[in-house]
Computed example of a mutant assay.
Amino acid sequence: MDTLKKTGRRKFLFTSIFLSILIVVLFFISLNMGVVRIAPLDVIKTLLGMGTERDRLILVDFRLPGMVLALLIGAGLAVSGAILQGVSKNELADPGILGINTGAGFAVILFIFFFQGSMANLSTSGVFIMPLFALFGALGAALIIYVLAWKKGLDPVRLILVGIGVNAGFGAAIIIFQLKMNPQDFMQAAVWLSGDIWGANWKFVWALAPWILLLIIYAVYKSHALNILNLGDQLAIGLGTKVEHERRILLVVAVALAGLIVAAGGGIAFLGLVAPHIARRMVGPKHQLLIPITSLLGALLLLLADTIGKNILAPSEIPVGVVVSILSAPYFIYLLMKIK
């Protein structure tokens, strides 16, 4: 048993270091790329405070905030998916598929429609208020799904079917309000809903980063409860766990992460589904190992998608959510074929 634990820890440590190195390398490559290319040596000089004013403006004011947001969004969305899969014991659970992202998106669309007027000009207060709208929208969607899916417990198939229905309902409501927007706001909202890291400024980073990081840390702290819930309700109750209490807390954490992420990156689908599955193959099902690796994988995958989206058709950009869907769709189809 001790040998197995040591092997698991070594595997976890190696995987963590490997993924962290990949993130750092990709982060540095991403800083070099773009419509205006900056040589690696100039990037290093600028980061050390010795670069030109032009390079500092491009890197510090424009590229870095978007890349930091990509890392935060990827990590948070992946952890949200891991929690939902653990709580529901459903391999297809994901904030995008279940309708949580769409509920958060609907709340943000309402905020834009009634209070903001234009997504391009966020006021200082709007940067902090919009994540709250997204959070309430995600919580509302999760509550509807939980109530409708509950029938002497959470049945995995019922959860997915209810989630798809709620997703469709909120999607229709979003379209109704989009059609009432002026053409400029309509196009901005359409791009954002497809998954676009549009609030790429430090103000938005500081508004979201503390909450996302705290929720991820709390998810790691509650990983033991997720492990027990995976044993089944009867066994978990026998071990003295307050099953419904723990389930609700974990659902709130997952939904809060999804809501904050929708405020920053729109409707990014599949990442919360794929990252936990890949992480599970790397380090196994124990959530104290799974959640940290999932967060690193999510951050890496979204940074990769963001880099591809910004450079493959430069100067035009492909929304990061579209790139994630293209990269993840084959794996999603594989999962559907695998599950009986």
Rank of each mutant, 00 (worst) to 15 (best):
residue 3 T to Y: 03
residue 3 T to H: 05
residue 3 T to R: 12
residue 4 L to F: 03
residue 4 L to Y: 01
residue 5 K to T: 04
residue 7 T to V: 04
residue 7 T to W: 00
residue 12 F to W: 05
residue 13 L to D: 03
residue 16 S to W: 10
residue 16 S to A: 15
residue 17 I to V: 15
residue 19 L to E: 01
residue 20 S to G: 10
residue 21 I to G: 08
residue 21 I to F: 15
residue 22 L to C: 14
residue 23 I to N: 01
residue 23 I to L: 11
residue 25 V to F: 14
residue 25 V to D: 04
residue 26 L to I: 05
residue 26 L to V: 07
residue 28 F to K: 13
residue 28 F to Q: 08
residue 28 F to G: 12
residue 29 I to Y: 14
residue 30 S to K: 01
residue 30 S to T: 12
residue 32 N to R: 10
residue 32 N to L: 02
residue 33 M to Q: 12
residue 33 M to E: 00
residue 38 I to A: 05
residue 42 D to E: 15
residue 44 I to M: 09
residue 44 I to H: 03
residue 44 I to L: 15
residue 47 L to F: 14
residue 47 L to Y: 12
residue 49 G to Q: 13
residue 50 M to F: 14
residue 50 M to K: 15
residue 50 M to H: 15
residue 53 E to S: 15
residue 59 L to I: 15
residue 60 V to N: 13
residue 60 V to P: 06
residue 65 P to C: 14
residue 65 P to H: 13
residue 66 G to K: 11
residue 72 L to K: 00
residue 72 L to N: 04
residue 74 G to Y: 07
residue 75 A to Y: 10
residue 76 G to V: 10
residue 76 G to L: 13
residue 76 G to Y: 05
residue 79 V to I: 09
residue 79 V to A: 03
residue 79 V to T: 10
residue 79 V to F: 08
residue 80 S to D: 02
residue 80 S to G: 10
residue 81 G to M: 04
residue 82 A to T: 13
residue 83 I to D: 02
residue 86 G to V: 04
residue 86 G to P: 01
residue 86 G to I: 05
residue 89 K to V: 02
residue 90 N to F: 07
residue 95 P to S: 08
residue 95 P to C: 05
residue 96 G to D: 00
residue 96 G to R: 11
residue 97 I to A: 01
residue 100 I to N: 05
residue 102 T to K: 14
residue 103 G to Y: 05
residue 103 G to F: 07
residue 104 A to V: 02
residue 105 G to L: 09
residue 107 A to G: 10
residue 111 F to T: 02
residue 112 I to T: 11
residue 113 F to D: 01
residue 114 F to W: 07
residue 114 F to G: 02
residue 115 F to H: 03
residue 116 Q to E: 07
residue 116 Q to P: 00
residue 117 G to F: 04
residue 119 M to Y: 07
residue 120 A to K: 11
residue 121 N to F: 11
residue 122 L to A: 04
residue 123 S to V: 02
residue 126 G to E: 00
residue 126 G to P: 00
residue 126 G to D: 00
residue 127 V to K: 13
residue 130 M to D: 00
residue 132 L to K: 11
residue 133 F to A: 09
residue 134 A to M: 11
residue 134 A to R: 06
residue 137 G to N: 11
residue 138 A to W: 09
residue 138 A to K: 12
residue 141 A to C: 13
residue 143 L to N: 09
